[in-house]
Design a protein around this nucleic acid. Structure first.
Lengths: 355, 355
DNA sequence: TGACCTGTTGCAAGCGCTTGCGGTGGCGGT
DNA sequence: ACCGCCACCGCAAGCGCTTGCAACAGGTCA
């Protein structure tokens, strides 16, 4: 067992209250005794019992991070950054994974956080007003990442704008039949959430300002995974009039899309352009063109926002822009290249302009 | 603020001690009053203050999970599984990321965990004897994942065996010049750790039992990332006698290897076979042949082992086997195929046996 | 020289639980 | 009818800190 305040007090020849004050840099202790106390504490390897000081102060110096899933690159990244910032500020970080609806209900069902954390960062989950109230009633400071709520600090991405930008890139390349592959919110556990929806809105907006017709058969939704992307793309492949490009709401789904296209013998980007979203760490491996949104920064922002709330400062609601990262999966559609007489080295049949 | 024991006691018409006992299913309370107390607690939305009960019992009902990095698939996966098991057992989970050597030293430098957790799962980090002692002196139960230590519960993979198996697969395909691409432990923070070393040992063992010469130029090490894999493979490409296959110590590095090969115009697996390690979630996207080692199960095992230690049961030291997952990046070497007259549809020149 | 600060320290009352122990009451056995 | 036992319950003493308040110095100012 480790030393307690009393042993330190005894060793330094002062009272426990002085020890407490000295060790926490609270005024009212002469610098001489403070030094003496610190030395004694170090010598004894003393570190205050968190349980006791929590009980006495009512503050835990711990914060929770709530995520829908852990085993995805985005969440690992974001949590890692947030946790580091939090830890530097002297906070412990508790992890809560709300993978199923049942877990979510249980989490928000009772005073789960009460006395465990001072605040919580909620990631990629849109809390209801009731849930936010419940957290507030437990005295929890709240910061949102990938969601917004009135009066609550948050950091998110301009998903609508990013969606528009992405689609505009495809339009600018000359594509006219552009599909949207999005995330389906199947079990209500909000794995999809608001951001993907906004990406869809951006897609529609871009199409309509370009004067192109809406076509619901071009919008395909599935679970946010490689397999989901593959399924959605497969559905697109059997449509009457196959699109020439797709804006995919997540890189992981885009990976599935690429896989299906490859298996179908289609050449990317000659036959089909793919534009993802996330700038996934592994996007570079398959040369995926994508929308980057500075994931690490978002994590840090969220942590800082929470610290602001904890310090009584009024929290910001940051909206970050996304930017296009051009790699190798987008290009002008084949028809355009043919019309322009561009040399085409693929396995296509007709070579107009060739003797 | 939430209700306290006293309010519940008052409501149920009993003493606080009875409330405490009733709510924790401790014998010595008639089932009638127990029910009454539980009802009162529910009605008041009561949940015991963890700080107070920690202080009183000395147990925290929280465990720490220590990882070198978070933003990697393997760690996210393993943590997710472990955390879920732990949570089901009623434990909070604290996260500690030891990304740098400095962080590691700080973590093990003081009584960092004391009073915060009852135990800790250490993942992919080989603790020294001193470090283990320090944890023990803080009353921490310990479970290791991806490492072993005498007397400590652990779960790990038979890396040496898996390495041998992997190389044997390549040998069986007919390869004779097989490279090893491993993880370099550059900054001493043990990102590589013991398991990768054992994989190397397995590689060497397999080669020597096959009667093949050791060739250190075939062993390339770099950081465990796509970029690291790419660099290592690039080094192999300039060797005097380029190998025909590589066993890569992590899938992520293997992704980098594949990328370089593709960019170099080499066909996988016709010109070069690649065999990874991890069965990374995204391995399927690039059809990577790899060694699977049931990552999720390891996470669950580690959690259960820790729970065993906490319950006073003697912990197991599980060693899991790995198994080959055959996909599309391994095949017999070109020379063999040519000799056998196998039709070869690649861009190769000679087509023996063709009219 | 005495009243009055100001800066430093200690006292003691909590914070909200847990738990050993002692006190009930009802019951069966003699 | 008495005794002893047992099941159930409450008392109160902590657990190891924090913090308002009082106490005590050693000045300063009149």
């Amino acid at each position: 067992m480790t030393a307690s305040v009393e042993s330190v007090a005894e060793m330094a020849g002062v009272s426990v209250s002085t020890v407490s004050r000295a060790l926490r840099d609270i005024p009212g202790v002469s610098s001489a005794t403070r030094k003496r106390v610190q030395e004694a504490a170090r010598e004894l390897g003393y570190s205050a019992s968190p349980a006791a000081s929590r009980l006495a102060t009512g503050r835990t110096r711990a914060v929770g991070i709530v995520v829908p899933v852990l085993a995805k690159w985005f969440f690992g990244k974001v949590i890692g950054e947030a946790a580091q910032t939090l830890r530097e500020a002297g906070f412990d970080v508790l992890l809560f994974e709300l993978a199923t609806l049942a877990q979510r209900e249980r989490f928000f069902g009772g005073a789960h956080l009460h006395g465990r954390t001072d605040g919580v960062i909620i990631i990629a989950l849109q809390p209801t007003g009731d849930e936010l109230e419940l957290l507030a009633s437990q005295g929890q400071a709240v910061a949102l990442l990938g969601a917004e709520a009135p009066g609550i600090g948050s950091v998110s991405v301009d998903n609508a704008g990013a969606g528009q930008a992405a689609v505009r890139h495809l339009l600018n390349l000359g594509h006219e039949r552009i599909a949207f592959i999005g995330i389906r919110d199947d079990d209500g556990s909000n794995l999809g959430g608001v951001p993907p929806l906004q990406r869809l809105m951006g897609y529609r907006e871009a199409l309509s300002t370009a004067g192109l017709p809406q076509d619901v058969t071009l919008e395909q939704f599935d679970e946010n995974s490689v397999a989901g992307g593959a399924l959605a793309m497969s559905r697109l492949l059997v449509s009457e009039h196959v699109p020439t490009a797709a804006f995919v709401a997540s890189d992981e789904m885009a990976f599935g899309v690429l896989k299906v296209l490859r298996k179908a013998g289609l050449d990317v980007p000659r036959d089909f352009s793919v534009l993802g979203f996330d700038n996934h760490e592994l996007g570079d491996v398959v040369d995926l063109t994508t929308m980057d949104h500075e994931v690490a920064e978002q994590g840090r922002d969220a942590a800082r926002i929470l610290l602001d709330v904890l310090d009584g400062r009024s929290p910001a609601a940051i909206v970050r822009p996304a930017r296009l990262v051009v790699r190798e999966t987008t290009a002008p559609p084949r028809a355009l290249r043919l019309a322009a007489g561009t040399p085409d080295s693929s396995h296509s049949a007709g070579h107009p302009g060739t003797p």
